[in-house]
Amino acid sequence: MDHWDELRMFLAVAEGGTVRAAADALGVNHATIIRGIGRLENKLNSKLFEKLATGYRLTDAGTDIVELAGQMATASSQIEARVFGRDQRVSGPLRFTLPISFATDLLMPTLAGFMHAYPDIALEIIASGTIANLGNREADVALRVVTGDTTPPGNLYGMKLCEFYTGYYGHLTLLAAPSGSIPWLLGPGEAVPSEWLPEGGIRMTATPIRFAEMRSQFEAARAAMGITLLPCFLGDVDPVLARVPGGPVARIGDVWLLTHSETRQTKRVRLLCEHIRTAMQDYAGRMAGRPDII
């Protein structure tokens, strides 16, 4: 098939439902996606999408080929992974995905050191709250928090680096001399704690303040807006925050470093994994909520 790029665009629109989502997923502009879909429809002499006010919907013809296109995408990714797995150069592209707070508040000095040591590696840092698909080569190395006692899927090679704990934090002045009622600062899907109450005369309001992402939530706590749940590695080292008296410190899961089984022997993958593993060993006490070991 000589229209593989167009098929990738077709799949991205089918999965994302809009041209904008497909463009974001593939890192191109929306006009490129529209032209690519047009070329594929001309090649196949068939309409693949209906354009609706809410996005794009597959036609019967589009539905007929989406599964086959997905199989081609899987095969293409497997070919790329197999070739990439034999690459022993200390140069070339390398994609690393990790949670945003890990990138901005923990590992950026480690990644800077890695790039100073290996300047010919074209590192792409994907700091995101979404999980990249290592099997489809959306990333080559992933740092993830795996909740509970689950383990990563069988097609991934991983090592458990450390435990991950969270606690409740507020501004030092807010906790030292509480006056009036203090609001909870809640992130997506978080509920007001029901199993404990702050000690030290702290009274909480019935109405929380909600945030769409953790960074704003964290900055709100630093601005003395209220009390919030944070990773211990973030809250314990901040100079204006302190743990809330009586607040629990809870193990959420474990931090895993993951690669795909086909690509884990690539030299630059191994070099990055060693850098991250060493750094996270040094941070293990901080990740576990032991501020005396940071």
Rank of each mutant, 00 (worst) to 15 (best):
P231D: 09
A21H: 15
L40H: 06
Y56I: 00
A61K: 07
A25K: 12
L174Q: 15
E6P: 02
A53I: 06
T110Q: 09
S179A: 13
L68K: 13
F49D: 02
K160D: 08
L161N: 01
L68Q: 13
L272V: 08
S181C: 03
T150F: 07
M9Q: 11
W184T: 01
K160T: 07
E213S: 15
I252M: 10
Y56P: 01
G70S: 10
R264I: 01
S181H: 08
F96Q: 01
F211Q: 02
I131M: 15
C162D: 08
D140E: 13
G253V: 02
I209E: 14
L48K: 06
E124C: 05
I182K: 14
S77E: 06
T259N: 11
F102Q: 07
P152I: 02
L98E: 03
N155D: 14
V240W: 09
R243K: 13
L241D: 05
P231Q: 07
M280S: 03
A139W: 07
G70K: 09
T207G: 00
V90P: 01
G200P: 00
D24C: 00
S194F: 09
V90Q: 13
L7W: 11
T63S: 14
G289M: 03
M72L: 12
I37G: 10
I293L: 15
L185H: 12
A61Q: 11
T18P: 07
I227D: 09
I65E: 12
I294C: 11
T166W: 13
A139N: 04
I79R: 11
A14N: 08
E138S: 08
A288K: 03
Q265G: 00
I100Y: 15
A14D: 07
A75M: 12
A224E: 05
M9E: 07
C162P: 00
G62L: 09
F164Q: 03
A132N: 12
D238Y: 01
V13P: 06
I65T: 01
A221V: 06
G235K: 10
D140V: 03
Q71I: 04
A73W: 03
P99M: 08
L107Q: 05
L186I: 03
M204Q: 08
R137S: 12
D87F: 12
G289R: 04
T32E: 11
P183Q: 13
L161Q: 10
F102W: 10
E41P: 01
L143R: 07
G62M: 02
D2K: 09
A139H: 04
E67K: 13
R39K: 06
D140K: 03
K51S: 05
I79Q: 06
A73G: 05
S216G: 15
E219S: 04
I79W: 05
A127E: 04
G148V: 03
T97Q: 12
P231R: 04
T150D: 14
Q71G: 02
S46F: 03
T63K: 15
R20P: 00
H171K: 02
A53W: 07
R286L: 15
W184D: 04
T173S: 14
K47Y: 03
R39N: 13
A23M: 10
M72E: 12
R222Y: 04
F96K: 08
F211H: 06
R137D: 08
L68M: 11
T150Y: 03
K47G: 00
T74K: 10
D60P: 02
E6H: 15
E41C: 07
T263F: 11
L40I: 02
R210D: 08
V237F: 03
I293H: 15
T151H: 02
R251V: 00
P248S: 11
